[in-house]
Design a binder for these strands. Structure first.
Lengths: 213, 213
DNA sequence: TGAAATTTTGCAATGACCCCAAGTTTTCAG
DNA sequence: CTGAAAACTTGGGGTCATTGCAAAATTTCA
C-alpha cells in the first residue's frame, strides 16, 4: 500500500505550512501575521497556501481535525446499557481526569487561547466548528435510534449534549487563559461536570440507551 | 427635549443607509452586493457607511437591535412565583401563538432567511449575537439570584435557556426557509416547545423563581 | 456672524482571496 | 528509459472589505 511520492510530498507541504503558520500566530497573534508572510516563511507562494487551506483560519485549526466527530464517535461507541449523554459524560470525565491535552489541559494552552481571544474571525470559525459537531452528533443519534425523519428529538438531544461539551470547553479555555495550572483546572472541571449532570433531565440522560433501541 | 437638527439627520441617514442595504441584500444576496454599491444607492460615500456601521454584516442585522437583551428582559420581567426558564417559555409561547413577526412568523421571512443561508459571514455574525444574548442573560440571572462571583450556575442556566431560544429560532428559520406558512409553523413550534419543556430538568425549570430568592 | 465642533468625502493603502495562464514536477504507458 | 498526460506551483492581475488621513462641507453657538 505504498503511497506515491506525490501524496507524501503533499502531506508534508501541508503540514509544514500549517506548522509554520501556527508558530507565527502563537508568536504574534492571528491578525498580525499576513498570509504572504506565512507563504514566505514556508518557502511557497501565497497561491499554494490557498491551495491547501480554503481560508486563513483553517491554518490555525488544522490540528483540530477529528475534533468534529469526537462527540459522534463517543456516542456510537457507548457501552451496552449506556445512553448517549452518559457516554459523553464518561468520556469527558476520563479526559479531564487524565489532564489530557486533547481537552486543552496542558502547559501552554493559554498561548493558544490568547490567539483565539484576540481574533474575532477565529472565534467565528470555532462556532462553525461547533455547528459541525452538532450536525455530526445529530446524524449519529438519528442513526443509532433509527428515528423517523420528522422526529425532533435527535436534534434537541444533540443540542443538549453539545451544550455539555461547550460548557466544559469554554470553562477550560477561560481558566487556562487566566493562567491556571492544568491540574487545578482539571479538578475544578470535574466538579463542573457533576453540576452539569445535575442539570440534565432523566429524559436526556436516558436517550439512546444501547440495547434498548 | 427637542433634539438638534444634527441628531435627527444622523438618525435618518443611518436608517436610510440600512434600509437601502437591506433592500439590495434581499434582492440579490449579501455577497453579491458591494459596500460601494450600497453607498452609491444611498447617496453617501463608502466612508460614511463605515461611519455608521462597523462592518457590512451590521447593515443587515441593524433592525435586530433589541433582540440581544430580549431573553434578559423576559427573565427580569418574570411573574411572582415564576422561574426564569418558565418565563421564557411563556413569552415564547405567546409570541409563537400570536404568529408574531418578532419571532420570524411572517410572510416573506423566507427571503430574509435565504440571505442568511447564502452568506457564511452573516451566520457568523448571528452566532456572535447569540453569544451576546447569553452574556446578557447570564448577567441578568446573576443579578436576579444574587449569585456569588464563582457560582457556575448562572452560566449553565443561561446556556440552557439560550438553547431553548435557539432551538425555537432555528426551527422557525428552517421551516420558513422551506416555504411553510407562518400559521402552520406556529402550530408546529408550539408542539416543539412542549417537547423542549419535557427535556428540561426541574432544577432548570425552577431556577431563579421570583420571590424565592 | 464667525470660529469651534462634527460630519462627510476623496484618496491611498493594506490584506484576504480569486482566476488564469505559464512553468515544474511526478506518474505511467509503451 | 522516455515523452506526453496529470497534478502541483507560481506569477500577475483583479475584486472587495476595511482603515487612516487630511481636506471640504455642515451645524452649532457664543
Amino acid at each position: 500500500m505504498a503511497e506515491g511520492l506525490r501524496e507524501r510530498k503533499k502531506r508534508q507541504t501541508r503540514q509544514y505550512i500549517s506548522d509554520i503558520a501556527t508558530g507565527l500566530f502563537l508568536e504574534r497573534g492571528f491578525e498580525a501575521v499576513t498570509v504572504a508572510e506565512i507563504a514566505d516563511a514556508a518557502n511557497v507562494s501565497v497561491n499554494t497556501v490557498y491551495n491547501y487551506f480554503p481560508a486563513k483560519e483553517d491554518l490555525f485549526f488544522d490540528r483540530s481535525a477529528g475534533m468534529v466527530d469526537r462527540l459522534a464517535r463517543w456516542v456510537r461507541g457507548r457501552d451496552a446499557g449506556e445512553s448517549a449523554a452518559r457516554a459523553v459524560l464518561r468520556e469527558l470525565r476520563g479526559e479531564v481526569e487524565a489532564v489530557s491535552p486533547r481537552v486543552g489541559l496542558m502547559e501552554g494552552y493559554d498561548r493558544f487561547m490568547r490567539v483565539i481571544h484576540g481574533a474575532p474571525s477565529l472565534r467565528s470559525r470555532l462556532w462553525s466548528l461547533q455547528q459541525e459537531v452538532h450536525d455530526a452528533l445529530e446524524t449519529a443519534l438519528r442513526e443509532e435510534t433509527r428515528a423517523t425523519a420528522g422526529d425532533p428529538l435527535p436534534d434537541l438531544i444533540a443540542g443538549q449534549i453539545c451544550w455539555i461539551h461547550q460548557a466544559v470547553f469554554v470553562t477550560i479555555g477561560r481558566e487556562m487563559l487566566a493562567g491556571r495550572k492544568p491540574a487545578e483546572v482539571s479538578r475544578e472541571v470535574l466538579v463542573l461536570l457533576d453540576d452539569i449532570e445535575d442539570l440534565l433531565s432523566e429524559k436526556v440522560l436516558n436517550y439512546a440507551v444501547r440495547g434498548a433501541e
